[in-house]
Amino acid sequence: MTHSGTTKPKGSIAAAPEKIPITLTVNGTEAKLSVAPWTTLLDALRDHLDLTGTKKGCDHGQCGACTVLVDGRRINSCLTLAVMKEGAEVTTVEGLAHNGELHPLQQAFIDHDAFQCGYCTSGQICSAAGLIAEGKAKSADEIRELMSGNICRCGAYPNIVAAIQQAMERS
């Protein structure tokens, strides 16, 4: 059996759209950059601002590794267009420690060994910071449910829950 096929055309490109200048406040510092309309906040952080602490694990909102806080709320930066966040305040994992002193969540993650490879960790910590700010999770069950948008393939979940509980007690 032999037949031929071609990849289906996916539309063709006339002229690439102009880059768009935007201003973000990232970790307290104003950042001006020029992005394509389809540049995600994640790519803007990693490639344009060299803030590689925020991770790309799926690029489709399926893993949570890219979680950052935008105007105080946790979101998936991979499904966020940078241009849409013009003027927003973005906090990444690089912005959590102050003057070299770790954020209570960062310290708790070390204390409880809440990671192995470390690739989901930035997202877990930013997500946990968002979770604590929301104030909806009290029990371990509630933490587990509200942290389920952050996949840890190394399987550190029980330690992640313990770390968040420690940080909650101390905050």
């Binding site: 803030l51 590689t52 602490g53 925020t54 990444t92 994992v93 690089e94 959590l96 420690a97 770790l102 960062q106 310290q107 993650f109 070390i110 060994d113 990671f115 470390g118 960790t121 930035s122 910590i125």
Partner: peptide
């Protein structure tokens, strides 16, 4: 972990 700080700070 001795590399813990590097991982939690990004």
């Amino acid at each position: 972990r001795v590399d813990g700080r590097a991982k939690v700070t990004g």
